[in-house]
Design a protein around this nucleic acid. Structure first.
Lengths: 147, 147
DNA sequence: TATTGTTATACTCTATAACTATA
DNA sequence: TATAGTTATAGAGTATAACAATA
């Protein structure tokens, strides 16, 4: 490998990988969104419901969803309107509201997990070995860049 | 591999890979955005300028950027205001306007390409062999799912 | 009739700021 | 003072619809 001589080729290579990476992420996102629509949920509502296998404060859910806490109010409102979760008082701190899944919410969460298993692009197209390789490469890329 | 018995493990595996994939895409997106800001461009403006190494009709640029044609007007306006591109009449069809890079635009495009070579998370953290593996895995995942 | 580019408008997603009730 | 949740509002990014010019 002659460093410096293949700079344009390196650029094309990085550009190609970036295109594949965004394409794979977009494919995964679209599959997830379609699955959510089939269950009458928005993607963020589905992610919230999946995260609530155990009750959690609204602020903690905001961290999990990587969004501002002000957004959680509306997400929780809609899930609560549908009877999938309830707001319950947190023991020990009356400022905190825990979001807890109802039995209807638990049922829908299990359905979502089954649907994801059935439609995951990773599970459908890659072998166990290939998935392990992909995980290793993506993890290495991020651990080398977490500055 | 005992099909059916490891379904929960499969779900966790797919969930973990999806997290890594979105994380890698987000990292790449943020690096690109930071680089764009350093050159006083929005990401979509930078992508447009990079796509205009050869002149192209506005409609064709919309396809490349995967956005609605109505958005291209504003993108082109701002690049034209900065003297990076010009609108020129297309030979043979007076409805069409070609967007053509100026020499200033060509210079900035070369700077962007150099900056991307210097900051690409792929080039910085993966070997040639690992990049080839990653490309193969991502391509396989998409070609198996392009229904 | 259909298409290119333009304009005005609307929608989605997300963040910021101000507020209350607690701590 | 600081924090959890709520509310109202604003911004970025993108899409839709109607239009003039041209095919």
């Amino acid at each position: 490998m002659l460093a410096g001589l293949d700079a344009p080729a390196d650029f094309d290579d990085a550009h190609e990988i970036a295109g594949l990476l965004f394409g794979a992420a977009e494919l995964t996102r679209q599959r997830f969104q379609r699955m959510c629509e089939q269950h009458d949920l928005t993607p963020v509502q589905a992610r919230a419901l999946m995260a609530l296998a155990q009750p959690a404060p609204m602020r903690a859910l905001a961290d999990i969803l990587r969004c501002d806490p002000s957004n959680v109010t509306g997400i929780a409102d809609r899930l609560e309107d549908r009877g999938l979760i309830t707001r319950v008082a947190a023991p020990g701190d009356r400022r905190v509201k825990l979001l807890a899944s109802t039995s209807a919410g638990d049922g829908l969460r299990r359905k979502l997990e089954r649907a994801l298993r059935a439609t995951s692009p990773f599970l459908r197209s890659l072998t166990d070995r290939e998935r392990a390789d992909l995980k290793r490469l993506l993890a290495k890329m991020q651990s080398s860049n977490d500055a």
